[in-house]
C-alpha cells in the first residue's frame, strides 16, 4: 500500500469514529444473530428423537436437488424481474408528476404515500376484500365491460395479484426518494436546456434521468431487497397456492422454519436467498454505475 498523506490519515481516523456506532450496531444486531442462523444451516434436528446433528452441506444438497425448490427459485426470480422494474418506473413517473409545483401537491404526495403505513394484516384484509369474486375490482371491471377475474383464486393470476398488492404499498414510498432526488437537480440546468430549445422528452432523457441515477440506484436496490423479503401477503392470503404459484422464496423459508420445523433447510434457504439477492444487486450496481460527480 502506498504511504498515505496526512490528510488521508486524518480522514481514515475520523472515518473509524464516524462509522463505529453504525458498524458496531449492525454487528451486534444483525451479524451476530445471522451467524448463529447460518451455523444452523449445517445442522439437522430430528423431530423423532430431538437430536441435533451436524450434517455439513446436506441441507443445501437437498434443496438444490429438489424440483420444488427449483420451482420456488423460478417463481421468485420471475416475480422480482417483473415487479421491481415496474415499481421503479411507476414511482419515478409519479415522482416526475409530483415534483412539480402544483396546487396541493403535498396533499397528493401524502395520499399516495399512505399505503406504505398501513399495517400488513389490514393490507391483506383490504385486498382480499377488493379481489374477492364479488369485490371492488370485479365491480370496476364489470362497469367497463370486462369479464369477472378470479385473481387470488387462480394459479394464473395469484402471483400478479400479490405483485399488485406489494406495488400498491411500495410505489408511494419509493416515490418520495425519487422526488427528493429530483429536488436536488439544479434548476439552472433546465433553464440552460430550455434556452437550447430542448423538448420535454429530450430534457427527461438527457438531463433528468442521468442526474437521477443515484437516487434511482437506491430505490432499485432497496426496493429489490424489499420485494425479495416480502412474504406477509403470501402467508396471509395464498399460503403459496393455488398450486404453488405464489410460493416465493421468503415464504418458503417462513414455511420451512415455522410450519414444517425444518430449521436447517430454512436457514440454508436464507443463505441461498441472500446470495441470489447479492448477485441481483451487484448487477444493478453495475448497470447504474456511479461515480462521484
Amino acid at each position: 500500500m502506498p504511504t498515505m498523506s496526512p490528510r488521508r490519515w486524518r480522514d481514515a481516523r475520523l472515518a473509524v469514529l464516524l462509522l463505529a456506532p453504525a458498524v458496531l450496531g449492525m454487528v451486534a444486531m444483525r451479524v451476530v444473530p445471522a451467524v448463529s442462523a447460518f451455523a444452523e444451516s449445517f445442522n439437522h434436528l430430528s423431530l423423532r428423537t430431538g437430536v441435533k446433528e451436524f450434517v455439513g452441506f446436506e441441507n443445501y444438497a437437498y434443496l438444490l436437488g429438489s424440483g420444488e425448490f427449483h420451482a420456488v427459485l423460478g417463481t421468485t426470480l420471475l416475480f422480482n424481474l417483473v415487479l421491481n422494474p415496474v415499481i421503479v418506473v411507476l414511482s419515478t413517473a409519479l415522482a416526475l408528476l409530483l415534483a412539480q409545483r402544483l396546487p396541493a401537491v403535498g396533499l397528493w404526495r401524502s395520499l399516495i404515500f399512505v399505503p406504505a403505513a398501513v399495517p400488513g394484516s389490514v393490507t391483506a384484509l383490504i385486498w382480499s376484500t377488493a379481489m374477492q369474486p364479488d369485490g371492488l375490482l370485479n365491480a370496476l371491471f364489470a362497469a367497463i365491460g370486462l369479464p369477472k377475474q378470479p385473481f387470488l383464486t387462480s394459479s394464473g393470476q395469484a402471483l400478479g395479484s400479490i405483485g399488485l398488492m406489494l406495488a400498491w404499498g411500495a410505489i408511494g414510498y419509493w416515490m418520495l426518494f425519487v422526488v427528493a432526488g429530483l429536488k436536488d437537480i439544479p434548476q439552472a440546468v433546465y433553464e440552460a436546456a430550455l434556452i437550447d430549445g430542448a423538448g420535454w422528452w429530450r430534457r427527461l432523457t438527457a438531463i433528468t434521468l442521468p442526474l437521477l441515477r443515484r437516487p434511482m440506484a437506491f430505490v432499485l436496490v432497496a426496493g429489490t431487497v424489499g420485494s425479495f423479503l416480502a412474504f406477509a401477503p403470501v402467508q396471509i392470503l395464498t399460503k403459496g397456492g393455488p398450486d404453488g404459484s405464489t410460493n416465493l422464496l421468503m415464504y418458503d423459508v417462513y414455511a420451512n422454519a415455522y410450519q414444517v420445523g425444518d430449521l436447517g433447510v430454512a436457514q440454508a434457504e436464507v443463505v441461498l436467498l441472500m446470495i441470489l439477492m447479492a448477485v441481483v444487486v451487484a448487477i444493478q450496481f453495475r448497470v447504474l454505475r456511479e461515480e462521484r460527480s
Binding site: A22, A37, V270, M274
Partner: peptide, 29 residues
C-alpha cells in the same frame, strides 16, 4: 465524503447486512 482505505468494503458490508431478513434472525436476536 471521506477518502479512506476500505471504504468500498464498508459500503458493501452495509448493503449486505441490509439484506439479512429480520424474520430469520429475530428469534436468535
Amino acid at each position: 465524503v471521506l477518502n479512506f482505505p476500505g471504504r468500498g468494503y464498508v459500503f458493501v458490508f452495509v448493503i449486505l447486512v441490509s439484506m439479512v431478513p429480520f424474520d430469520a434472525i429475530a428469534i436468535p436476536l
